[in-house]
Design a protein around this nucleic acid. Structure first.
Length: 283
DNA sequence: ATGTGGCCCTGCGAGC
DNA sequence: TGCTCGCAGGGCCACA
C-alpha cells in the first residue's frame, strides 16, 4: 500500500479528524513495531493538540503543541483508519478492536484513529519539531520529488556516480524520497528505460526526462487517491484506486501497452524485489 | 564511501 | 479441507 502517493492520501484523509484536535487518550497495545516505541509515548501524546499533519517522503508527521512531532511510517502493511466521524457523514460507531490494531488515538472530537499493521515493518517515534530535519530517520532522505530541490541537475549529478541499476537507484531513498517498487516500475516504463541499465550510463537527456515523469506519475496517483477519500473513510479502510492505472507493475505476461510495441511484460528480480518491464520498448 | 544480501513479520493465493 | 511454498507496497544493518 504505502508509497508516497498512498501516504499523502492517508495524510489528507486523517487531517480533518486530527488537525486542531486534542489527543485525549492514546492506546498503545504493544511495546514496539519495528523498534520500541519512544519512552512514555502514550503519556507524551495525551493532552497534546495536533497543530498540523505533514508528510516527508513516506513519513506522516503529526505536529503537536508540546513541541514534539510524532513520526509515523506505515512500513509495508500499515494502515490508519478513522472511525466515529464527528460530522456524522459516514458512520457513528467505533468498530471492535481488530487483530494488529497496535495504536489507537482518541481525539477530542470523538473520532478515533487506528494504526493497524500486520507485519509490523512500520514505526513510530517522537522528535523535537524544531529539529525534525536532524532526526536520524529524516536526515538521510533525499529531496521530495514534487519539490523544487528535485530537478534535472540534481538527478544527473546524483546518478552520474551510481554504479547500480537505475531501478535500484530510484528505489534508494537517499537519491529521491518516496518512490517505492510500484512507482519505480511505472516511471521506468513510461520513460522507456530498461531497469537493469546502470544509472551512471544513462545520458543526461534520459535522466532529465525522468524528472517530469516521476512528478507526473506521483501527481496522478495522488489525484486518484484523493478521489477515493470517501472509500478511505469507510470502516474497512480499503484504498483501491491507482492500481487500475498500473501499466507495468504486476502485469507479467500482459501485452505491453505502448503503441506499436507488441512486447510482453516480464518479471525479473533486482536486489530482492520484483521488477516488471517490457524488454522490447524499454532500452 | 558504495553496493549487495539478509532479515524483520504476518497473510494470502497457488499448487498439491 | 489442509499443508507448503513463494511472494508482498520498506528499509535498516552487517559485510564485502
Amino acid at each position: 500500500m504505502p508509497e508516497l502517493p498512498e501516504v499523502e492520501t492517508v495524510r489528507r484523509g486523517l487531517a480533518p479528524s486530527m488537525e486542531g484536535q486534542v489527543i485525549t487518550r492514546a492506546d498503545v497495545n504493544r511495546p514496539d513495531l519495528r523498534w520500541p516505541f519512544p519512552e512514555n509515548m502514550a503519556a507524551r501524546l495525551t493532552g497534546a493538540k495536533v497543530t498540523a499533519l505533514r508528510r516527508r517522503s513516506k513519513y506522516i508527521l503529526v505536529d503537536l503543541d508540546t513541541g514534539e512531532t510524532l513520526i509515523i511510517h506505515l512500513g509495508m502493511s500499515g494502515r490508519m483508519t478513522v472511525s466515529g466521524d464527528p460530522l456524522g457523514q459516514f458512520h457513528h460507531d467505533h468498530p471492535a478492536p481488530a487483530k494488529h490494531d497496535h495504536v489507537v488515538f482518541h481525539m477530542g472530537n470523538g473520532a478515533r484513529v487506528t494504526f493497524n499493521d500486520a507485519r509490523r515493518f512500520g514505526a513510530m517515534d517522537l522528535g523535537d519539531t524544531a529539529q525534525l530535519g536532524d532526526h536520524w530517520l529524516i536526515k538521510p532522505i533525499g529531496p521530495e520529488p514534487l519539490g523544487n530541490d528535485f530537478n534535472e541537475t540534481y538527478l544527473a549529478n546524483t546518478l552520474s556516480t551510481r554504479n547500480t541499476p537505475i531501478k535500484t537507484a530510484l528505489l534508494d531513498q537517499h537519491v529521491v524520497a518516496g518512490l517505492g517498487n510500484i512507482y519505480v516500475c511505472e516511471v521506468l516504463y513510461r520513460a522507456r528505460i530498461n531497469p537493469t541499465r546502470k544509472a551512471k550510463d544513462l545520458s543526461k537527456k534520459r535522466v532529465a526526462s525522468l524528472v517530469p515523469i516521476i512528478r507526473d506519475v506521483l501527481s496522478e496517483a495522488i489525484a486518484a487517491g484523493g478521489s477515493s477519500l470517501k472509500d478511505y473513510r469507510q470502516a474497512d479502510g480499503e484504498l483501491g484506486y491507482f492500481q487500475h492505472g498500473f501499466q507495468a507493475y504486476d502485469r507479467e505476461n500482459d501485452p505491453c501497452q505502448t503503441p506499436e510495441c507488441g512486447g510482453t511484460i516480464v518479471r525479473i528480480t533486482q536486489s530482492g524485489r520484483s521488477t516488471f518491464y517490457c524488454p522490447k520498448c524499454q532500452r
